[in-house]
Write a protein that binds this DNA or RNA. Structure first.
Length: 661
DNA sequence: GAGCACTGC
């Protein structure tokens, strides 16, 4: 391993780290930074006073890199070298080099804000700008002031604007270590193609006919099934999403075709909606993709866009996740750390999220009782922050505990955490099968998808977690096992939070139909107070409350049923708003008017300016955001006593809105 | 009546 480029820089690295609390290390793929940097510091005695921590954005990376380092150190994993990821802690008292996901380090800092057990913290792959890494960057900046005498922080990345991070950390030094990639020739197309799917197909065939052997990796935005599997001894065409940029390494790739696009999920804080959009990649991503051609020998990267477009239109770096996500969980986490003079709107992020996004987070936290009207964290909010869940789901668990339905809520919340991994990979044959078998699964009594998820898990429990049952019902075994792990972890945390011995056993009893789920639905209503929607008068469209007014529909895959008149419930809570062909509510649950009334009253009282601190003079931006909260419409919502008056009230609102237009 | 990239506690 002595021949890795980084080892030639050992003296320089050690010298720089000795004299500076924070150092940025830029190292291309193949530089050995992830494996060698901690070993260099270990050799130089930095693990004597504490552990050397190395964070990774992904679980697989934490495990595989630590295994390699353990091998190089000639120790077993869990001894001097170990790793910690969710559900799996392979460290011991002997551990001096510890690989962990950035999420695990964030959790640790919740219970030990000074992170005293660590003498060195290396944030690896920082260029990916994961939400967790970005929060850690902000926390490290504060931590280094408290612990300037006994903590070293290294930020390492492949292609990151080192100058920017250096400026963030008071002009700390930037070291650049060359990588060991083979040269990659970049070829741009002369003009943008009409269809990048078609163009990439043509280019692939072109390479196949003209170029010497070597596999072809094609970056597109979804799994387009245009290529059939190759016979042996043939050239492989690998069609991939951005998964091959980071998570997956394909050996034998010599040619890369880069469409220049990626599918990205983004959150709109004014409407509360997520959307999946095909967007242009950044220069950093384009470089990352090209690099995949030079791992085994010199390669070529064909870019399906002109070099002028690359230079003039492409963003330098991908928009960081923190600017594309709902920040309710993040803001609650930061509030619970009790950082001194902590104004959430002024937290020092490398790239700050918009004021609107932070205020949306505050508004959501207020509605779920995690912060009070002055923006201070409540005792309930502190408990919520301990749960590794979105605030609405932690709130649901705590309310369920009060309403004696914790066991059911634990199941629902765990199922939601794994939902995308439950259904099988799409294929023509399984699609038909799935339709068939899903009809055999319970239907949630028509009350909604949360109840159905609960019933599915309870059925599985009654088969004693039988793997064949999952297969028969076309549920991914790995997904269901994950649900079971999450449920166990959440049960333990709930036991700890409530300091009691709770009944968290999955129910085995069959009781009286719909009534069985009343408390659970009430807990969901209180938990999802920030995700409540009201039905329109004459049709089954809904309007989410507390956001800019938009018409949304219940997703057609929902098991929610309409009444004898064909009307859906007057109020539902939803797990997610997602814009595909239209805006949809995914995973909805019917709730009752008498549970909704207090939430409407709270929406009415909402004052975002006060929530965000309110002591300083409001600037224009804040005033404008406050005005987007639809005071008039919300104030018009009365909490009526019965269904007739409720409908009357809704009709008046409807007419009032019509009149305004 | 839809159809969704990736990751994490």
């Amino acid at each position: 391993m002595g021949d890795l480029p980084i080892v030639r820089f050992e003296e320089k690295i050690v010298e720089t780290v000795k004299e500076n609390p924070v150092v940025v290390v830029i190292g291309e793929t193949g530089s050995g930074k992830s494996t060698q940097l901690p070993q260099i510091l270990y050799r130089r005695g930095y693990a004597k006073s504490g552990i050397i921590a190395v964070t990774q954005p992904r679980r697989v990376a934490a495990v595989s890199v630590s295994r390699r380092v353990a091998q190089e150190q000639n120790v077993r994993i869990g001894e001097e070298v170990g790793y910690a990821i969710r559900f799996e802690d392979r460290t011991s008292e002997k551990t001096r080099i510890k690989y962990l996901t950035d999420g695990v380090l964030l959790r640790e800092s919740l219970f030990n804000p000074e992170l005293n057990q660590y003498s060195v913290i290396i944030l690896d792959e920082a260029h990916e700008r994961s939400l967790n890494t970005d929060i850690l960057l902000g926390l490290m900046k504060r931590l280094i002031k408290w612990r300037h005498s006994n903590l070293k922080v290294l930020i390492t990345s492949a292609t990151l604007d080192g100058g920017k991070v250096s400026r963030f950390f008071s002009d700390c030094p930037v070291l650049t270590v060359p990588g060991e990639l083979f040269p990659v020739e970049i070829v741009h197309i002369s003009e943008l193609p009409k269809s990048y799917v078609e163009a990439s197909l043509k280019k692939a065939i072109d390479i196949h006919v003209r170029e010497p052997e070597g596999d072809i990796l094609i970056f597109l935005t979804g799994q387009v099934r245009v290529f059939s599997p190759p016979p042996p001894n043939c050239r492989r065409f690998i069609v991939s999403t951005n998964i091959a940029e980071t998570s997956l390494t394909v050996d034998g790739v010599v040619y890369v075709i880069d469409s220049g696009y990626v599918k990205q999920r983004q959150y709109n804080p004014s409407t509360g909606m997520y959307s999946l959009e095909v967007v242009q990649i950044s220069k950093v991503q384009a470089k990352q993709r090209a690099g995949r051609a030079g791992r085994t020998r010199p390669g070529k990267c064909y870019r399906l866009y002109p070099s002028t477009v690359y230079h003039d239109d492409f963003l330098d770096a991908t928009i960081p996740e923190i600017q594309r996500s709902s920040l309710a969980g993040t803001v609650l986490y930061l509030k619970s750390l009790d950082l001194a003079d902590m104004d959430i709107l002024k937290f020092d992020f490398l790239d700050s999220p918009s004021v609107e996004s932070l205020e949306d987070a505050l508004k959501q936290l207020y509605l779920v009782d995690a912060i009070d009207e002055n923006g201070s964290i409540t005792s309930l909010g502190r408990k919520m922050a301990e749960l590794p869940l979105e605030p609405s789901l932690s709130r649901t668990l705590l309310e369920a505990n009060e309403l004696d339905c914790l066991s059911q809520a634990l199941t629902v919340v765990s199922m939601l955490s794994a939902e995308t991994t439950l259904l099988p990979a799409p294929s023509k044959s399984s699609e038909k099968k799935r339709r068939h078998t899903l009809s055999n699964l319970p239907d949630g009594f028509g009350l909604g998808d949360h109840i159905q998820l609960l019933q599915i898990y309870e059925q599985w429990y009654q088969t004693d977690y039988n793997i064949d049952w999952c297969k028969e019902n076309n549920l991914q075994v790995r997904g269901m096992v994950f649900v079971r792990d999450v449920r166990k972890q959440l049960s333990q945390i709930m036991q700890k939070i409530t300091k009691g011995s709770l009944d968290v056993q999955t129910s085995n009893r069959r009781r009286g139909g719909q009534q069985e789920y009343k408390s659970l639905r009430k807990a969901l209503c209180i938990g999802y107070a920030n995700q409540l929607a009201e039905r329109m008068i004459r049709h089954n469209g809904y309007r989410p409350l507390g956001f800019k007014s938009e018409l949304v529909q219940v997703h057609p895959s929902s098991v929610l049923k309409s009444d004898e008149d064909g009307m859906l419930p007057n109020y539902v809570v939803y797990h997610e708003l997602i814009v595909t062909s239209r805006p949809f509510m995914r995973n909805v649950c019917a709730v009752e008017m008498r549970w909704v009334a207090p939430i409407l009253a709270k929406l009415d009282k909402l004052n975002v300016f006060k929530l965000s601190g309110g002591s300083s003079q409001p600037d224009n931006q804040i005033q404008e955001v406050t005005s987007t909260v639809e005071k008039k419409e919300i104030a018009a919502v009365q909490p009526p006593e019965d269904r007739a008056s409720m409908i009357q009230a809704a009709r008046e609102r409807f007419l009032a809105r019509k009149g305004q237009k």
